[in-house]
Amino acid sequence: MMKRRWMLVTVAMLAVAPVQATTWGTDTVQDPVSGKPCAVSSPASFGGYVYQWPEKYDQVFWPLTDPMGIWLCDASGFATFIGDIELEEGEKQAIAALLRDAPRLPEQATLAARLERLEAIYALRTLTPDARSRILRALAYQYQSDGQQARADALREQARTLMEARLQDQALPLDLRLKYLFVTANYARERGDAAEADRRLDALATRLREAQKDDKVKDYAAYLDELIVPSRTIAPGGVLAPEP
């Protein structure tokens, strides 16, 4: 499972900060398919400003939204999002079979080639609905960044279906409920359904008032509350972002 340190929005990093650069180092992990060493990028420095970048409307964040956050192991051709390196035996066998017939990707493979490989491999991964939704949203943002808007839209639609199904679960944790109401509202507005988007944002606003009383989620709730107004200006069609 993807390391939680890169998957959870921490309270400490939610503060608004000036836009700054991120930096990367290198690390070595074991290729889960070949068992050989795999050289990968590893975050060296970043700050809370990453939670104010445009991908916040998908609620996925750096380093998942950075091309360097895609790990590619040369020995086998295995690709994964940063930190998500552990495979179950069934996953390993299915992915190894896929890679045996796949062309070798060079170290400097294009983002388009990496995304195609990444998407094919994640289709074979065993994921919870929440994890798959997050992966689909991260893939969508990366495709959008690469100028492949149609593919980004298709993956967001898949993620929307998963999130809406989860919203029907009364036991869904509050932080996920807030997140999914926000993201599905953004997706509705982007596809041109402003009425549905407003309905979901109104439902979110009600939940946010409740969440302000919950110490576990109140900081996240305050963060989302600040995003409601700009989210209402997301332009239909095109990239998922408010109108300038």
Rank of each mutant, 00 (worst) to 15 (best):
M1C: 11
M1R: 12
M2V: 11
M2A: 15
R5W: 09
T10G: 09
L14M: 15
A17F: 03
P18L: 08
V19C: 05
Q20L: 10
Q20Y: 00
W24I: 06
G25I: 02
G25L: 03
G25M: 01
D27V: 00
Q30F: 10
D31H: 04
P32L: 06
P32M: 03
V33A: 02
V33L: 02
V33P: 01
S34C: 03
S42F: 10
P43R: 07
F46I: 01
G48M: 08
W53Q: 15
W53V: 03
P54V: 12
E55F: 08
E55M: 12
Y57R: 04
Q59L: 13
V60Q: 02
I70D: 01
W71E: 14
W71H: 14
L72T: 06
L72W: 00
A75L: 01
F78V: 07
T80M: 10
D84W: 11
D84I: 02
L87M: 11
L87H: 07
E88V: 00
G90R: 04
K92S: 05
Q93E: 14
Q93N: 04
L98Y: 13
A102Q: 09
P103G: 05
R104N: 07
R104L: 12
A109R: 08
A113Y: 02
L118M: 10
L118I: 08
Y122D: 05
Y122P: 04
A123S: 14
A123G: 13
R125F: 02
T126A: 12
T126C: 00
L127R: 13
T128P: 02
A131I: 06
R132W: 08
S133E: 11
Y143I: 05
Y143K: 07
Q144P: 05
Q144G: 11
G147Q: 02
D153E: 14
A154I: 09
E157A: 13
R160A: 13
R160V: 13
M163Y: 06
Q168D: 15
Q170T: 14
L172W: 03
L172P: 06
P173D: 14
L174N: 05
L174Q: 14
L174G: 01
L178I: 12
L178Y: 07
K179L: 08
Y180S: 01
L181A: 09
L181Q: 14
L181M: 11
T184C: 01
A185W: 04
A185K: 06
R189G: 00
R189N: 00
E190H: 11
R191I: 11
A195C: 07
E196A: 15
D198A: 04
R199W: 03
R199M: 00
A203R: 14
A203Y: 08
A203E: 15
A205C: 03
R209L: 15
K213D: 15
D215L: 06
D215K: 07
K216W: 04
K216Q: 13
V217D: 01
V217A: 01
V217M: 05
K218F: 08
A222K: 13
Y223H: 11
Y223R: 07
Y223P: 07
D225A: 13
E226V: 09
I228K: 04
V229R: 12
P230M: 01
G237F: 02
L240C: 08
L240N: 12
